[in-house]
Amino acid sequence: MITARREAWIGRLLLVAMMAVTILPFLSLFVTALHPSGTYPPGLAWPGDPQWGNFLRAFEAANMGALLQSSVLIVLGVVPISIVLGTMAGFAIGHLRVIGGRVVFLVFVLGLTLPFEGIITPLYYQIRDMGLLNTRLAIILPLIGLFMPFSVFWMRAHFVNMPQELSESARIDGANVWQLFRRIHVPLAMPAISSLGILLFLWTWNQFLLAIVLVDDATKRTMSGALGAFQGQWGTDIPLLCAGSLLILTPTLAIFLIFQRRFVAALLQGSLKG
């Protein structure tokens, strides 16, 4: 019993230590953000005169309103299309078992581990030739393609477990393939779809490489890319940079805290399957 109690205490201590290490960077950002702009505050020191106005200045300097709007537009472009197309393909490959489905699936699977840096160069010239550089479509279209392997993989994993009898009975009732998909399988797939949606949202929101290469205007980028631009422009003013970073973090953190259960579950399943 004594050992058990000691183990429990060690466990608690470890947890607290780990949480402290996790929180530390956020805390440091926050404290530094309150120092007068242009200074180099040493370590963790509470400022004598906290400059709450830094957040307002960063909000204006970063043009946060426009950034939020841009990120939302990009997410709205990427996530629904990816979900619809991924679900349809996953349904066809996993449930309808189309001819040649296995080969197609293998081709998709090969893309699962693709590092984006591998194709960023030709992607740049392709987007340029399409005349889409410096538009949000330059991020949206390639991301749909790049997320397709995972979306298909994820949805196939769901559909492959759906019993065929479900479809057999619907077919007997005269439903065609589209109705079968729309009326029976999509409603049943909602949990898988919403988890996929969360993952795609997060990956889109935090996409950096495509944003900095394909879009120069920070107000047409993702949040992450905008933060890169913000660092490029204000990196010389540490408190302002910290304030801006925190502001840019806030939306994801807020959404995470609201939907945290789903988030954690989705991310865990996501990495298990991916």
């Binding site: 740049y124 340029r128 550089l133 410096n134 120069d216 205007d217 920070a218 631009a229 490029g232 422009q233 990196g235 010389t236």
Partner: peptide
């Protein structure tokens, strides 16, 4: 006006001048 640090401008210059 868009602003960046000089190192970033150096990286971006050919690309920006050509395509934007």
């Amino acid at each position: 006006i868009r602003e960046d640090q000089f190192a970033v401008i150096t990286q971006n210059a050919p690309r920006v001048l050509a395509d934007n």
